[in-house]
């Protein structure tokens, strides 16, 4: 050991060791949940965010233009499908209105409090992606809504197709979204999502990790005999305050017995496409609006 010290020069090794210890301390300190960012961090994020904003949008438009030309053929087919879907929605809308009316009357009759009535009245704020970090472990996006717009840590972020991630850090004008593809049961910062099937609410499970190799979310703790089957659309249950109700997570790809028996584990193909980011929606729950 002494020889090693002499070899490198005492001073240099000492500095390197201290720097290493400090870096590890910094990582450990910032690893856990932090309520607020310090002002230098906020300043840096907002300044860089402003510059990124200038670059990202035009690039998206140009790339989108080329893609649109490529997709010209598919659009006709897609239009056909959308027309059919729209007709179905209009038919169901009438039914939905009746049910909502009835639901309201029943709530009135049962003397629901104002908070209970408003519980599922979410609002969706549109946000523009301004940059992407493609690090496989720490996949995150920066969006252009921040504390000024009322965004808070822990709010869910969705795309048109399905759930994308959770707001992990907020500065004044921008915030970072941690994607659900970086969810991990062992990670202290990520919470599992309680989920159910869209058409059958008897299904229950928890989505708490993502398998990188197969690019699927893993839904665990499904009871044996659960009616879950391949092709089911999985949505968030929203019993806890962490995640709102009814966010689309994905579709079931396969169901098998879990590692320890007793329960089942399902592989879920995420509904959102984790590429070509443009607009996203931040879900505001009514409690947070006050």
């Amino acid at each position: 050991m002494l020889k090693l010290f002499k070899l490198l020069g005492n001073k240099r090794l000492f500095v390197i060791l201290i720097a290493l210890v400090m870096f590890i301390a910094l990582m450990g300190f910032t690893l856990g949940p932090r309520a607020n960012l310090s002002w230098p961090e906020k300043f840096l994020r907002d300044t860089v965010g402003f510059v990124q904003n200038i670059f990202y949008k035009p690039a998206g438009y140009v790339a989108g233009l080329f893609k649109d030309i490529g997709n010209m053929r598919d659009i006709y087919k897609e239009n056909e499908q959308l027309k059919i879907a729209l007709a179905q929605y209009t038919r169901e809308k009438a039914n939905y209105n009746f049910m909502e009316e009835q639901n309201k009357d029943l709530q009135e009759a049962l003397h629901f409090t104002e908070a209970q009535k408003e519980k599922y009245n979410y609002s969706y704020h549109i946000a523009q992606v301004i940059s992407v970090n493609s690090d496989p472990v720490n996949r995150s996006l920066v969006i252009d809504l921040g504390a000024r717009d009322g965004v808070k840590v822990g709010q869910s972020v969705i795309s048109v197709k399905g759930m994308v991630g959770v707001v992990s850090h907020v500065s004044n004008f921008t915030s970072t979204v941690k994607l659900i593809t970086s969810m991990d049961a062992k990670d202290p910062n990520s919470n599992g999502i309680a989920v159910t099937a869209m058409n059958n609410h008897q299904t229950f499970g928890i989505v708490e990790s993502y398998d990188e190799a197969t690019q699927m979310l893993i839904m665990t703790q499904i009871k044996q005999g659960d009616p879950i089957k391949k092709g089911d659309t999985i949505v968030s249950l929203g019993d806890t305050d962490k995640y709102p109700r009814g966010l689309i997570i994905g579709t079931v790809e396969s169901v098998q017995e879990s590692q320890f028996g007793k329960t089942w584990t399902a592989m879920i193909k995420p509904a959102a496409e984790f590429q070509d980011w443009k607009q996203l929606f931040v879900v505001f729950t009514p409690e947070e609006q006050k």
Binding site: L20, F23, L26, M27, G28, T30, L31, L37, E41, L44, R45, V48, G49, S131, N133, D135, V137, N138, R139, S140, V142, S168, H169, T176, K178, S182, D187, N189
Partner: peptide
């Protein structure tokens, strides 16, 4: 450090180090 702070997901200091 710039990278760490702007894309702050889990922790700060990884890229810097």
């Amino acid at each position: 450090m710039l990278h760490d702070v702007v894309f702050y997901g889990d922790m700060i200091g990884v890229y810097s180090l």
